[in-house]
Amino acid sequence: MAITLKAENIEIVYIKTESDLLKTIAILENKKTIGFDTEFDRFWKSYGFNLLLLQIYDGEKCYLIDPLVIKNMSPLWAIFENKNICKIAYSCSEDIQILKINGCHTKNIFDLQVAAKLCNHTANSYGELIQAEFGVELNKAMQKSNWNDRPLKAEQLIYASNDVIWLIRLFEIFSAKATQNNVAAMLTEENEYCETIVATEYVIKITNKQKAQFGPYFQKVLLALFIVRDSIAEQYNMPPFAIVPDYVLENIIQNKKQFIDSPFAKGFCNKLYFDEINKQRFYEIIENIDTTISIEPELKQKGIKNEKAIFRENAKENVEKNCKKLLQVATQKYGATAADFILRGLKKGLLTNSYSELILRKYQHSVIQDLCSENKITL
């Protein structure tokens, strides 16, 4: 299937067979740079973190590769793992994660979001960056469409293509700007870090807000309900919140009698109403809640702080003053956006740790130490 983007006269090739994928790979392996993006679902329309579409632009054609149809995507990973081919993306963290989950360890990455920030560009999104550089406003109407559905609409294919067809041109612009702004080495280090990104482990857990709201016993009850909900969500291939939202379960453990009198009256997905086995799993946990135990969290001990906490609290005023001064001199040297990016997390980190304990990029340490030395700032 091929359609044409009229505005840019770029052919979009929709790859749905392994034979077409192999032909595409043969073309891509001769390229020096490619732009890429992914469409995925992360517990939004379905269960899990799932790759739904992979878009690649090679400077001539845009390839939309469908992993829901092509069962063996592994031959393509050789392109992404080839250090001689630069892979250009914008805000690549989740793209790298979903590829790693699928067995691909991407090498030689260029993240345009990072490049733009280090070059002191004020754009806060990919759309803003394209608008600023090319005067083109992207149509984002398909951004929240359901990428699990097949067949994909022509509008979705065009939207997906627009996410990659500008990447190579932007790469050329910001590669040059990074050199001009003397931030090329910083950008290289950031891009090398992208290769180390790992997929965030999915853990069923109680939120901090719920910990503050409920005591230990009711936290365990809530967690047990979450575990049952997650099991059902995986069985139904639905996100857990679509089975039953957190707030419904929170209300139930606070009002056991109301639920027992009228079980599953509201808040649960329709499919569950006809599933007696899974309803019983919820019911057994709720039925056995001990209502004699206080639902309130235990009072935290007050006035007991370790020496490190006391030291950092006493140092707060000094940290804020020195970080403010450091940001001012960094802004003078690199610009406001770049300075914010280079010093990101510094003040927050220093309020809980000493400088030597902070985990920073090598270039961040170098910039901070140089600026502190030049301006007599002590962290």
Rank of each mutant, 00 (worst) to 15 (best):
N255Q: 04
C269K: 07
K362S: 11
D290M: 03
S373K: 13
S46N: 14
Q254M: 06
T33Q: 06
N9Y: 03
I227A: 08
L225E: 03
F268N: 08
L167V: 04
N322E: 10
K348E: 05
Y217M: 13
D340P: 00
R361S: 04
C323M: 02
P240T: 09
I285D: 09
K302I: 08
Y273L: 11
W147F: 13
W147A: 03
I204C: 14
L371Y: 01
D66T: 00
S294F: 11
I15G: 13
H121S: 07
Y47S: 00
A336D: 06
L68H: 03
Y273D: 09
D41P: 01
N9C: 03
C269M: 07
A176K: 14
S145N: 14
S125Q: 10
L343Y: 01
A212R: 08
K220S: 15
L28K: 13
A115P: 04
Q131M: 10
C194V: 00
K144Q: 10
A265P: 01
A339S: 14
D246L: 12
E137T: 14
E298T: 11
Y90W: 02
Y126L: 10
C194T: 03
Q258R: 06
F43D: 12
C86G: 01
N191A: 15
A265G: 04
S161W: 05
F110K: 07
A160C: 08
T17H: 13
V183K: 05
V203F: 09
F218Q: 10
E39M: 12
D37N: 05
Q210H: 10
A315M: 07
E276K: 11
S46P: 02
A141Y: 04
T292A: 15
F80L: 08
N50C: 15
E357K: 10
N148S: 09
T122L: 05
A199W: 03
G303N: 01
K83Y: 12
N182Q: 13
S93R: 11
P216Q: 15
I253E: 05
Y63W: 07
Q235R: 15
W166C: 00
A185E: 09
N102M: 00
K321N: 11
D58R: 08
S46M: 10
A89R: 01
S175C: 04
L118R: 01
L299P: 09
K321H: 10
N251V: 01
K220Y: 04
L68A: 07
N84H: 09
I197W: 05
N50E: 15
S125K: 10
I173W: 04
A309V: 05
F49E: 03
F311R: 06
N251G: 14
L152P: 02
F274H: 13
N353S: 14
S373W: 01
G48T: 13
F264N: 15
F36R: 08
I304S: 15
N353H: 14
I252L: 05
I168V: 09
F49I: 02
N288E: 14
W77D: 00
F259A: 00
V244G: 06
L170Q: 01
T38R: 03
F274Q: 13
